[in-house]
Design a protein around this nucleic acid. Structure first.
Length: 286
DNA sequence: ATCCAGGGCGGGT
DNA sequence: ACCCGCCCTGGA
């Protein structure tokens, strides 16, 4: 049954910024500018109307509670943005540009697999691959005369062989996804132990044990699902923007990740991940 | 046509 | 520790 929730006068909430800042792959823009997506067993449409946000859809529980958790509504982004904007002019500009960004609280399993798929790949293709996986191995949810598919659980995805995955277009990532799924299926590693691990460095080490998870993917999982706002995922865009703003090296490829990590930690401290999102979105879109 | 896209892996120094 | 070539795929 359809539910609706209206969030009144929310300053830091812009659907386009949230869904197109690179953190998620399953939200699509509708003709009216709203976004529709699937997360958990929920299908939701998010529409901005003045200062209000209208959430509408099929929810596995109370829509208000689900949205408060998923959209990180208990975090004060005004405060975060003020702090970051005071660091320097570059950050102030990028925050002005992506002022409605929020870090979603995404499902760990889905985030692990999604970012393994993102390796040396592009966003349209990543989205296509994930949709095909969901359609084949997830569960159907019908809403508003359309059919949506949930992201498959460990058990559900374990039905896929390596060649099944290859058929869906995963390319060389097929084996990585298969083996990661097997590790969780056989409880060689569990989602619970990752969620319960408080020490971020130990947590990163555990994530790096998964095939297909290197430093960049691990940082994305830490930031986009495990709420580690201090980690700083470095991809080509972040390297580009950091070099342009602070380093001015002719060949940006020569700037080492180590140097960038150090710079981010010095400048942004515990909010490096948030800073990354504003800079990334600004550089990609503007 | 060749290159590249939100890297990881394995095999070199 | 760094460095490098390779890896599927499809769109420009």
């Amino acid at each position: 049954m359809e539910q609706q929730y209206i969030l009144k006068k929310c300053k830091s909430f812009e659907p386009q910024h949230i869904f197109e800042c690179g953190q998620c792959f399953r939200w699509n823009k509708e003709k009216d500018g709203s976004y529709t997506g699937v997360f958990g067993n929920n299908v939701l449409n998010v529409k901005k109307s003045g200062d209000d946000i209208i959430f509408k859809g099929i929810c596995d529980g109370d829509i208000k509670e689900i949205c408060q958790d998923y959209f990180d509504l208990n975090t004060n982004y005004e405060k975060i943005k003020t702090k970051l904007a005071n660091i320097d002019e570059h950050l102030a500009n990028s925050i002005n540009y992506g002022n409605g960004i929020r870090i979603l609280n995404q499902d760990l399993w889905e985030t692990i697999i999604s970012f393994e798929i993102s390796a040396n790949n592009n966003i349209p293709r990543i989205k296509g691959i994930i949709e095909r996986i969901c359609k084949k191995y997830g569960n159907e949810i019908k809403w508003d005369n359309q059919t949506y598919y949930t992201f498959p659980s460990v058990q559900e995805l374990s039905k896929a062989s390596i060649s099944d995955l290859r058929t869906l277009g995963l390319g060389f990532r097929d084996k990585r996804i298969y083996e990661t799924t097997q590790m969780f299926l056989t409880k060689q590693i569990t989602l619970e132990e990752l969620i319960d691990e408080k020490d971020t460095e130990k947590l990163r080490e555990k994530l790096l044990m998964l095939p297909g998870v290197g430093p960049k993917v691990a940082d994305c999982i830490l930031l986009f699902s495990l709420k580690r706002y201090e980690v700083f995922p470095i991809d080509v865009w972040v390297r580009r923007v950091m070099n342009e703003l602070y380093i001015h090296e002719e060949d940006e490829q020569k700037v080492s990740k180590k140097e960038l990590q150090k710079l981010a930690k010095e400048k942004y401290e515990g909010l490096a991940g948030l800073a990354q999102q504003y800079l990334f979105y600004w550089k990609r879109e503007a």
